[in-house]
Amino acid sequence: MKWEDEAIVLAARPHGETAAVVQLLTRAHGRHAGLVRGGQSARLRGIYQSGNRVSATWSGRLPEHLGSLECEMECSYMARVLDDSDRLAALSAATAVCEGAMPEREPHPACFEGLLALLEALEGDHWAEVYVRWELAFLAELGFGLDLSSCAAGVENDQLAYVSPRSGRAVSLSAGAPYRDKLLPLPGFLVGRGEGGNAAVAEGLALTGFFLERHLFHPHDKALPAARLRLEQRFTPDGGTSRGGSQ
């Protein structure tokens, strides 16, 4: 059997001397792997870099086989962000999260669209805020969305400031004050308050990282990918992000 689809490269691992096993996030076939013959060659290696958008053709004798892949480059998002350490870290983190968390061969067109939108947004000024929103949407698409619409304690008279680690629901400032050591801070830009900034992004990454780890990685006995941890580390006060933004 054979199919053609749009895809984003998530990872490529060497296989033997010249081939590579490539993981793609496709629009209609979900996360899908395949063997690329000559995938380690100088001619093809550039195509199979994480974050590149490709046109993929998969073929295999049976659908459950690994099969072989042939890809044609559509857009090299990797080349766009190669010079920027923060954006490159975000691209690596996003592809590593998709590779580690998404079930294989289960169609999630919204995940494909979301990752594509994130890669497009990486060249913009507010890419880090977009990244946090992307992780929230990613959690929701995989069935673990957070409810940030109203206070879990029923208090409606002040701003939402926390998220309950147990329920994933927002908690208002006054209701959460006595438990603030146990609650996760909710950055304002996620509920339409404020524009973000590095400190808010750090809070957002800690928030989404907690739920990604709990719902998508821990059940499979895995830790958050190193690339995702490195991105979060960059937004800590001494993490060294060069991105402009209020602290």
Binding site: G46, I47, Q49, N52, M73, C75, S76, M78, A79, R80
Partner: peptide
């Protein structure tokens, strides 16, 4: 390829 051209232009 597009990636090399993008990098060269930048």
């Amino acid at each position: 390829d597009d990636g090399t051209l993008t990098a060269a232009m930048k």
